[in-house]
Amino acid sequence: MLELRLVQGGLLKKVLEAIKDLVNDANFDCSPAGFSLQAMDSSHVALVALLLRSEGFEHYRCDRNLSMGMNLNNMAKMLKCAGNDDIVTIKADDGADSVTFMFESPTQDKISDFEMKLMDIDSEHLGIPEAEFQAIVRMPSAEFARICKDLSTIGDTVVISVTKEGVKFSTRGDIGTASIVCRQNTTVDKPEEATVIEMEEPVTLTFALRYMNSFTKATPLASQVTISLSSDLPGVVEYKVAEMGYIRFYLAPKLEE
C-alpha cells in the first residue's frame, strides 16, 4: 500500500513539466526514504535523477519498496488537471496495475480522482559515484535559462569554461560566435540573485545545447541552479525541489575522439 500526500501539489506538476520532454517512460521508485526516479533520455546522453524525500510529504505511507512504471507525458496530462494550490495524493495498492492521483482544492470543496494505468518498464539503474567537482557554479536559474536559449540561436553546442575570472558560456555557428561571461557576484540584495563560483581547478567542457535547454524546463522549480563540472565527466545541472529534494540532470560531454 502506497499513500503519499503532498500539500504543495504544484511542485509535482512542475517536476513533471521539467522532465516529460526528456524522458518518455520511467519507473518511480518508492521506499521509506522517499519518492525517486532515475531515467535516461532515449539517446542515452542525459540522465535525470529525481528525489522527493519522505519528510517533505504531509503523509507518507510506503509499506514496501514499490516501483511504478509510468508514461511521463500521460502523468503530466493528469497532473495538469490539478490546480496549482491543490493537495495531491498518490495512491497505489501492492501489485496493482494502476496508480491514483487525488487532487483536493485548498478549501476541500473539490476532490478529483484520476486513475492512470501503470506499465512494465525494463530500465537499468545506474550507479552514480559521489564525485568531487573541479568547479561548482551557483547562479540564478532564469539567467542560466536565458543564456542557453540565447546561445542556441547561434550554435548547437556550448563550451562552459570556469576560471578564476568567472564562468564563460560560448558557442559558434554558421553566422558567427557568442560568448557570455558571468562573474561571481555575492553583493546582491536577494540571495537568489547571487552568482557563486567555487573552483578547485579551471575546467572546460563542451555540451549539446539541446539538452541544456531541455533541463531549463525545471526553472520554475527553483530560483537558483547549480552546475557542477569536472574534466571528462558528465556535467550536473541541479534544481532544488523546495526543501524536500532535487532534480539532477547529468549530461555526457562532447569529447575529443
Binding site: 540522465l47 537499468e124 539503474h125 545506474l126 563542451t206 555526457a252 569529447l255 575522439e257
Partner: peptide, 14 residues
C-alpha cells in the same frame, strides 16, 4: 573534432 559521449561511458549499471 568532438563527438557526443554517452552516459554509460561514465556510470555503470548498479
Amino acid at each position: 573534432l568532438k563527438s557526443q559521449a554517452r552516459i554509460a561511458r561514465f556510470f555503470r549499471a548498479s
